[in-house]
């Protein structure tokens, strides 16, 4: 897929709880095709301690308004500065980057989309695309507390929604891999993005239950286009591959994660 460098205008910056914001961006031109699982590299100009672009997964693409949505968690100076953007500001983006989740050809499939923390972001766009393809996804979102659960109404538009929180403040108490829906429904494939321990637990659950599983990795990156070789992950064959170009989405059978 051809990659673009685009100046995009902030149309809205919606704060979501304390630690997150939802940025909506538009461009003069029609946005290029973007696939679920792909990401963008955002240039951060107003933070003296931030040098590199920030890789952010695609949260949603609204074709009607020609808008790209980015869900940003304030982790450091770069993401905090991004969350200070105001409507009308221009952000420079490289997009679309990386590979994408595999969309099943068979409409009768029952996919489970598991997201944790800010890793729920790409699950929304994946769910929307699955829904558009005539497949009803099931979302299982995990968070520390109710306050870390984001965009729940939006998820409900595209599929069935289940939630766990570590403190039991919303949904079932515990981790995503303990949720009762896993016992009740036989899923055909699992897609997941979130903290690495969660993804590893999901990957091992999927492997043991014989369910196909794709994970989206968040390794720290410099270039985002396969030039610097900083964001590598080890494959089963002990090779280092770039998450930015060979991923961010990997079939778990390719990685060295399984017990």
């Amino acid at each position: 897929m051809k990659k673009y460098m685009l100046d995009m205008k902030v149309t809205a910056n919606c704060p979501l709880h304390n630690n997150y914001c939802l940025l909506k961006l538009t461009a003069d031109q029609t946005l290029p095709e973007m696939l679920p699982g792909q990401f963008v590299q955002v240039r951060v100009d107003r933070s003296p301690t931030t040098f590199l672009r920030r890789p952010i997964s695609i949260n949603y693409v609204d074709r009607e308004t020609n808008e790209l949505w980015l869900l940003v968690q304030k982790i450091g100076d770069g993401t905090r500065t991004m969350c200070e953007s105001r409507p009308g500001d221009i952000l420079n983006l490289l997009l679309p980057l990386g590979n994408s989740f595999t969309i099943p050809a068979d409409k009768g499939q029952k996919p489970l989309l598991i997201g944790g923390g800010v890793g729920t972001a790409p699950m929304l766009y994946l769910g929307a695309v699955l829904n558009e393809a005539g497949i009803t996804p099931t979302f299982l979102l995990g968070a520390r507390t109710e306050k870390d659960l984001l965009q729940l109404e939006k998820f409900e538009q595209f599929g069935d929604l289940f939630v766990t929180t570590e403190d039991g403040s919303f949904g079932e108490k515990g981790f995503v891999t303990n949720h009762s829906v896993l016992q009740q429904v036989a899923f055909d494939q699992i897609y997941t993005c979130g903290p690495k321990p969660m993804m590893m637990a999901v990957a091992n659950y999927a492997h043991q239950s014989g369910t196909a599983c794709e994970v989206s990795l968040e390794n720290t990156m410099a270039c985002g286009i396969g030039a610097c070789l900083c964001c590598v992950e080890k494959t089963k064959e002990e090779h280092h591959v770039c998450v930015c170009t060979e991923g961010p989405v990997f079939n778990i059978e390719k990685l060295s994660w399984l017990n």
Partner: peptide, 19 residues
């Protein structure tokens, strides 16, 4: 195969790499 991950650390106005 290069060095193990993590291989990169951002710094003000630059970065460290250990590819």
């Amino acid at each position: 195969e290069g060095n193990a991950y993590p291989r990169m650390a951002e710094t003000p106005s630059g970065m460290l790499n250990a590819v």
